[in-house]
């Protein structure tokens, strides 16, 4: 256990984790930034926010992803970016879980908001987000 902990908290491992998590966030942001109206539709589908907040959320959230991702890739303010990445990933997981529990058959909107991917919000994505959460938390607490 001690060996594993030493490995995951090693400077190089943290750097690589930052690159991977940052890359995921930057990639995830792009479609949402360029098609904010479609992303607002996706947010609407999750049925978690009051109508008055949906457009603003759809505008800010992808830019937060981009900023966090860029910070992690460049390697500046990694703990702060890790904190934000953790918070966002938790929000994504809550959104997916409530959609699954309520039986909403909706597009995930994780990386693609044009409806081309056909990826539905599912428990599989929830599990994928656990990996992202662990990486983000590691950067937040240890970077």
């Amino acid at each position: 256990m001690g060996v594993i902990w030493r490995v995951v908290t090693h400077r190089i491992f943290l750097r690589v984790t930052g690159l991977v998590v940052g890359g995921i966030f930057v990639y995830a942001s792009w479609d949402k930034i360029t098609q904010a109206d479609r992303f607002a539709d996706v947010v609407h589908d999750y049925d978690m926010l009051a109508l008055v907040f949906i457009n603003a959320f759809a505008l800010i959230m992808p830019w937060a992803e981009l900023t966090v991702g860029a910070a992690l890739i460049i390697g500046v303010w990694r703990r702060a970016a890790g904190l934000m990445a953790t918070a966002m990933t938790v929000a994504f997981m809550i959104a997916i879980a409530q959609a699954e529990i309520r039986g909403l058959k909706i597009e995930c909107g994780c990386f693609d908001v044009s409806g081309m991917s056909g990826t539905e919000a599912s428990w599989g994505l929830f599990l994928r987000d656990i990996a992202l959460l662990l990486g983000s938390m590691l950067l937040w607490r240890r970077a």
């Binding site: 937060a64 303010w77 702060a80 970016a81 934000m84 937040w140």
Partner: peptide, 9 residues
Amino acid sequence: HTLRAACLL
């Protein structure tokens, strides 16, 4: 870093 996170936001 919480303040830095706010700056990123």
